[in-house]
Design a protein around this nucleic acid. Sequence first.
DNA 1: GTCCGTATACATGTATACAAAATCAGAGGC
DNA 2: GCCTCTGATTTTGTATACATGTATACGGAC
Lengths: 206, 206
Amino acid sequence: MTPQTIADTLQADILSGALPPGTPLGQTDLAARFGVSRIPVRDALAQLAAGGIITASPNRTATVLKLDTAEVEEMFHMRMLLECDLIGRAVPNMTPSDHSALDLALERSSLEARQDNWASGDQMFHAALYAPAKRPLQSAMADDLRRACSVQVASYDQLVEKAERWLTEHEGIVAACHAGDPKEAQRLLRRHLRAARNHLQKAMKD
Amino acid sequence: MTPQTIADTLQADILSGALPPGTPLGQTDLAARFGVSRIPVRDALAQLAAGGIITASPNRTATVLKLDTAEVEEMFHMRMLLECDLIGRAVPNMTPSDHSALDLALERSSLEARQDNWASGDQMFHAALYAPAKRPLQSAMADDLRRACSVQVASYDQLVEKAERWLTEHEGIVAACHAGDPKEAQRLLRRHLRAARNHLQKAMKD
DNA sequence: GTCCGTATACATGTATACAAAATCAGAGGC
DNA sequence: GCCTCTGATTTTGTATACATGTATACGGAC
């Protein structure tokens, strides 16, 4: 039970919705759960805090990240900036093998999404989408932002059930990539993100 | 000596150039230096790693962030995306008090810069510049990126000596803000970042 | 002379124990 | 009934001690 393993496990729990936003993550409890002392747990929590999916302040127990609507606005806006730029660079760079890798990722992400694992599939799809851009740092940052958004999404069943719609939008983006049309890919991606943001914000107002 | 204090001190040392990129940051040494055990040192290092100004991997000693030219390219590109967007939103939002705060920040940053503290002044200036955009998350992310860039810049005396030129560019940006011209501000900011990137990359090729 | 294996030294990782801070519950006052 | 203060409980922070992992240097084989 290494800190990395603990962090990965917790992240999976958070992204699956098992640990909804605001859930307290006590060090003692987690230490007991994973059968280790609190030290590696602290490391794991630090990792998750670095990734931005939990909030941690000194002397208070960490909690699963909980955004308000303004913060959701910001997050999705940053995603648009970074991801639209990435896809714009990725499309012209796509080799035949990139295209097939993208198809594969789309398919695998559909499977994941239908196995109650939307976040994981979404992450995989977008990773394949931006990989040809060859921008590891920017992609990593976009990944973090997307994960933070997924944490919020995962807590609303009604949104997870929109998976079908989002998969359709993914297909459209892939089509634009295969057609070698960066502008269209950007446009569809922007729409995709805007739609996701709107649904999330609407759900949050309950 | 709280972890926060330790992290702040180390960050200042790194941004001043006292600890150039690649410098090893041994836990034991730091614990001795700050007169604490290794635990709070580990926390401090985790914070710095989260901020992206050191590199830390399990079972090896952390080192001050060292970027190659491709990574510098990426960092500055992300800065352009985030910061140009921020300034575009900030300018139309600037109140009279924002304008005077900006002037003050410009002045204070000039003083800092001439006191061998370029990074701190630069940080302060850009913070004031983007504050009216009311985008705390995006500003924080831009801050991190800028800090990481400053770490590299700080290690080249020849670049630090360009402070005068950069201050002049800052003045130009401020002028565009006072004129209420977001497009011009964005253009100048983009030029500013491009110039900084070019000089850094050129210096790195030695 | 070069390469590889091993042993030693060193740095990091983790557990336990204790200290400090924060939270919570209940008694008292308004 | 509500707020406030206080004490008890819980939770996090830190120091020490030990375990584990990594890098280095040395010796031997080829």
